[in-house]
């Protein structure tokens, strides 16, 4: 197949290619693999779509993401052909209007697409869902897929720190964030199943996450007590969810498998668990100084008991199971608010 993208001749020395990535602003500061025609073609061969198929249009520059351009960026990141479909599915998901990519790629917030993968492909592709899955586990799938999506936003979408994206701090996930769910250790249906897919489907869900918010406890064995404290922790007073529209956005909370087992015994139905978290994820209006409290009151956020709930509905709190067996910890992935998570199936060439 003839590729349409511009060819560039570069010295074969990897260090020269690294320099080129800075000169041309193709990079994320980390060395890249060369996007040769062979590498690109191997990725295209794994896709059911032709090279000129438009996957999506990526903001902020409204760059047209053809399968070929996505493959070039995936080649730079070192994505294996078998994993290319996850990259494509992630881009399809984040370009759904309700994910609000235009807002999320330009905001002052740290928010970035966080990929959560379900299905049999997790092990095959090296997607991390056990110990240190959010950084440090170094699975090939997690590191390359997340990075490829980030490179697409940079190179196709034109996202540039301080120029087209105004993120004040950014976050480590802006290099790429891709985890799996430890479905086999979850007492509940997987995230993908809860979103309408089957256990056999490979699915990527994209969450607009502001960062990783750690929680820990060693003093309480009661699942309800612990979930109460998690709910209270998620409802920190400067959360985005207290700034905007209460009905938008989701907060993801990742439980380690040991805690998940404990929580599952108290809440066999994950919807009941989410409802319990929602019910307790509030702060008293008196917590906020007068200026904030005034606005919360004006926006109808204060209920009849002088409580301000983090979210309007239980489905806006999304539990997942992953992480190591060391217990003791949970991680929140706080929401930007004006973004709804999206899921897409991974499609591969038959």
């Amino acid at each position: 197949m003839t590729l349409a993208s511009e060819r560039v001749e570069v010295p074969a020395d990897p260090r020269a290619q690294y320099e080129l990535s800075f000169r041309e602003q193709w990079g994320d500061g980390v060395p890249q693999l060369p996007a040769t025609d062979d590498a690109i073609q191997a990725l295209l061969d794994a896709s059911p779509y032709p090279a000129d198929h438009v996957v999506c249009v990526l903001p902020p520059r409204n760059g047209v993401a053809t399968v070929e351009l996505v493959a070039i960026n995936a080649a730079l990141a070192g994505v294996e052909p078998a994993a290319f479909g996850v990259v494509l599915a992630a881009l399809e998901a984040l370009s759904e209007p309700e994910w609000n990519a235009f807002g999320l790629t330009t905001t002052t917030s740290s928010v970035f697409p966080m990929l959560i993968v379900n299905g049999p492909c997790r092990d095959e592709l090296g997607i991390d869902y056990r110990a240190s899955c959010m950084g440090g586990a170094a699975g090939r799938g997690s590191m390359t897929i997340g990075r490829a999506v980030a490179l697409c936003l940079r190179n196709i979408g034109g996202q540039r720190a301080g120029e087209t994206t105004k993120s004040v701090f950014g976050q480590p996930a802006r290099f790429g964030f891709c985890i799996g769910e430890w479905e086999e250790r979850s007492p509940w249906p997987s995230l993908a199943q809860r979103r309408g897919f089957s256990a056999d489907d490979d699915v990527v869900t994209v969450h607009g996450g502001k960062g990783t918010f750690p929680m820990a406890d060693i003093h309480n064995d009661d699942p309800r007590d612990l979930l109460y404290l998690i709910a209270k922790s998620l409802a920190y007073p400067l959360a985005n969810m207290f700034l905007g529209n209460v009905e938008n956005g989701e907060v993801v909370v990742a439980f380690n498998p040991m805690w998940a087992e404990r929580f599952g015994s108290a809440f066999p139905d994950v919807d009941d668990l989410a409802a319990y978290l929602r019910e307790n994820a509030w702060q008293p209006i008196d917590l906020w100084p007068a200026a904030n409290a005034k606005l919360l009151r004006e926006r109808g956020r204060v209920d009849g008991h002088d409580r301000v709930h983090l979210v309007e509905r239980p489905d806006q709190i999304v539990p997942i199971v992953c992480g190591g067996l060391g217990s003791l910890h949970a991680i929140g992935l706080p929401s930007f608010g004006e973004s709804t998570m999206q899921s897409k199936p991974v499609v591969r060439r038959a």
Partner: peptide, 17 residues
């Protein structure tokens, strides 16, 4: 192409008109 060089593809989308 010299043996000391390789060809790669540009990963960026064309600039907006």
């Amino acid at each position: 192409m010299s043996s000391n060089t390789i060809w790669v593809r540009r990963p960026t989308a064309p600039p907006a008109g």
